[in-house]
Amino acid sequence: MRRGSNLRSTGVTLSLLLPGLVCFFGLFFYPMMVTVVRSLRPEGSDTGWTLVNYISFLSTTKARSVIVLTFMLSLSATLLSILFSVALALILRKKLGGHRFFRLTMLIPRVVPGLIGALGLLLLFGSRGWFNLLVMGVFPFVEKPIQINYTVPGLILFYTWLYFPFTALTTLSALESLDPGIEEAADVAGANKWHVLRYVILPLIMPGILAGSVLTFMAAFGAFSIPLIAGGNYRPLSVEIYKQIDLTPARWSAASARAMIMAMLQVIFLTIYMRILRRRSR
């Protein structure tokens, strides 16, 4: 009897889970497997196994520069986001006049389509954009517009603009869940604001910062639309993959091999990051 009801309960759980599992296996796992198989087939063929797609990509010097560029872009954007988010969160925590407005402002890059954000930034930082007009107006010795679009620093800036809200939101919520008594305790004990920040606030919100920055990093690592339109000659892995199938004839196997490399790099990096995060929060 007991056993019967247990079985039935398991059945109910399974049937409730079913839609999610079907979705996962049908729309994620199976396509991933297709990609894996495709990456191991010779180009344009449905039979035979080969590693040539991996080898031919990884053996080029270009491969290394693409991977380094991808990491460099996403890591720099993550670090910039952390710096910016901590400052912003410390300010917004004070609940100054208008802080609600800025809280909403913080969400904008996450809500509008990334392509539009990138378009606006391209216009703003273009040679005829307001940024260069301002710089040339203020500093007379700057005679030529500063080239920002289609450069690496420009891409880092764009990435940061688009992906910092992940870090900023978790940092802010970590900061706001701090017990104000703890800061007061440090204050009474003789710690000035710098000490309080350095020894009390920062260590305590570090898990929040790291959790958010993981999201920023993942988004930046997988970023596709931004480098596609704003990257110019700098192509991170995602664009490199797309370019393979944008050719005629499309090189699906080559693209798949690159995609597998990208996925593996991301998983490896995330694992390391999570390990650091766990150790930190212990």
Binding site: L17, F24, M32, R38, F221, G222, W252, A259, Q266
Partner: peptide
Amino acid sequence: RKIPGKELLMAMILLPRMIPPIAYALGIAQ
């Protein structure tokens, strides 16, 4: 509901958010 290994299963379901979309978009397209 009680599910053994719930956290792992959840992490699995959330995997599409962690892998760059372009990677499985290739498979989906095919």
